[in-house]
Design a protein around this nucleic acid. Structure first.
Length: 422
RNA sequence: GUGACCGUAGCUCAGUCGGUAGAGCCCCGGAUUGUGGUUCCGGUUGUCGCGGGUUCGAGCCCCGUCGGUCACCCCA
């Protein structure tokens, strides 16, 4: 009895349309990274499970695809790149001039129930700056995140950068003598402000030794909260990106390993979701690799940004334009007389070797069908090999005008018609 | 992990009171043996997600299970 071999839940088949969208996203990410002079790197997809335990604790294994390999090693499919980056950076940081501006695009896996924008398999664009403690690095990353969004065709009003400073929170808590679990409680309450019932928040804050009013007064400061925050606002303002910023000290980002600035790219349309997120994590490289190295970075996933593009008309239009260019065909060779198939094949190869995008029917088909295929392929020209030996006809698919030409002169003639040169 | 809704052709879906399944799209062929987007004609495809139960009889009702979607939890 043959069991149905279906795709695993939360994993993805990339049929051509989905693959085109994915490649559009990747290409856009790479183009922006190149502009900001980030170097591309990649790490292994499988790592020791301990690498993730070290950073996040044992609970993390509940959300990992992990198993014991044939060599009795506990291994896990990577759920994120930062621990790998920390390991790699710590091991070889002396080989690279600082600051190290690195980016990566690759697949990640999380064992959790999938929902909108969250699957078990997803791709992420990770950008990090290592070895630069100044907030000028944080600002550079935020600018890059904004530029990625602009490159996708998003505009002011589509998204905003929500940012906060976790270090300012830690200073504030320390001044009040709040530390350890109590500090965690406060940040957790702050994270849930607006989502949790106020009475519960009030009680939680009181138990930790502060109050909702005190917290709100602190949060009202926005970019004046710290010298670092002020510098970031000034930096981005100088670039003309001030309008994208929204200081909100309520952004704590999951109480992770962040030590300074934290920010997220937020969809302010119907989605109201984080499209990308990041921040400064100055202690992680030391924790994982034993070497002190200041670091900050952000990541953007392909699923949410893909949805956001599809839902935003002007971003989608840019995608469609890219797809049309990618799918176009310069010439479709029509074999109108089968006795000329050899000559047509020679023509196909000559055109392809000249760098043109050329297609034709692999097997004999009615001429009308071949033209339909040319139409379907959005070909600019049809090149017809008919009964009259030695000559071919180049027909414009748009205005239907035909140009006769010697078979040997086909590449030059067609390039000229396309407005390109050899 | 909790809850709600949904699983019928490759896709989108219809399927009445329980009586052994249909449309559109797509794809392929033809009308049309050397010239296109239209039109017309024809054709392929289903363990009705899977397993069990009720029934003379289940796509339909009941239970379970798997999968999908959404909300919550979480979000590195």
């Amino acid at each position: 009895m043959a069991e149905k071999l279906e795709r695993l839940p939360g994993f993805r088949d990339f049929y051509p349309d989905a693959c085109d969208l994915r490649n559009y996203v990747f290409e856009t990410w790479r183009r922006v990274a190149a502009r900001y002079r980030f170097a591309e790197y990649e790490g292994p997809i499988l790592e020791k499970t301990d690498l993730y335990r070290r950073k996040s604790g044992e609970e993390i294994t509940g959300q990992l695809f992990h198993f014991v390999d044939k060599g009795d090693r506990e291994v896990a499919m990577r759920p994120e790149l930062t621990p790998t980056l920390a390991r790699m950076a710590a091991a070889r940081q002396r080989d690279y001039r600082k600051p190290m501006k690195w980016f990566s695009i690759g697949p990640f896996f999380r064992y959790e129930r999938s929902s909108k924008g969250r699957l078990r398999e997803f791709y992420q664009f990770n950008c990090d700056i290592l070895g630069e403690p100044s907030e000028q690095a944080d600002a550079e990353l935020i600018a890059m995140a904004i530029e990625v969004m602009l490159e996708f065709g998003f505009r002011q009003g589509d998204f905003v950068i929500r940012l906060s400073d976790r270090a300012a929170w830690m200073d504030w808590l320390t001044e009040r003598g709040i530390s350890g679990d109590a500090a965690t409680e406060v940040l957790q309450a702050v994270d849930k402000l607006g989502r949790e019932e106020e009475s519960k928040t009030v009680a939680q804050l009181a138990a930790a030794g502060t109050s909702l009013d005190e917290v709100r007064a602190f949060m009202a400061q926005t970019e004046a909260v710290s010298a670092r925050a002020t510098a970031i606002s000034r930096n981005l303002g100088a670039r003309g990106f001030g309008g994208f910023l929204e200081w909100d000290l309520g952004i704590v980002r999951g109480l992770a390993y962040y030590t300074g600035t934290v920010f997220e790219v937020f969809d302010i349309g119907k989605g109201m979701r984080a499209v990308a997120g990041g921040g400064r994590y100055d202690n992680l490289v030391k924790l994982i690799g034993g070497t002190d190295l200041a670091a900050c970075g952000f990541a953007m996933g392909d699923v949410v940004i893909g949805n956001f593009i599809e839902e935003t008309p002007h971003a989608k239009a840019r995608l469609e334009e890219w797809l049309a260019a990618r799918r176009s065909t310069d010439a479709f060779v029509v074999v109108a007389d089968e006795s000329r198939r050899d000559a047509a094949l020679a023509g196909v190869q000559a055109l392809r070797q000249a760098g043109l995008r050329v297609d034709y029917s692999l097997t004999p088909r009615a001429v009308g069908k071949q033209f339909s295929s040319a139409e379907e392929a959005t070909a600019s020209f049809a090149v017809i090999f008919g009964a009259s030996a030695e000559s071919v006809s180049i027909k414009s698919m748009s205005d239907r005008s035909e140009t006769a030409c010697e078979a040997g002169a086909l590449p030059e003639t067609l390039l000229k018609l396309l407005g390109r040169s050899l």
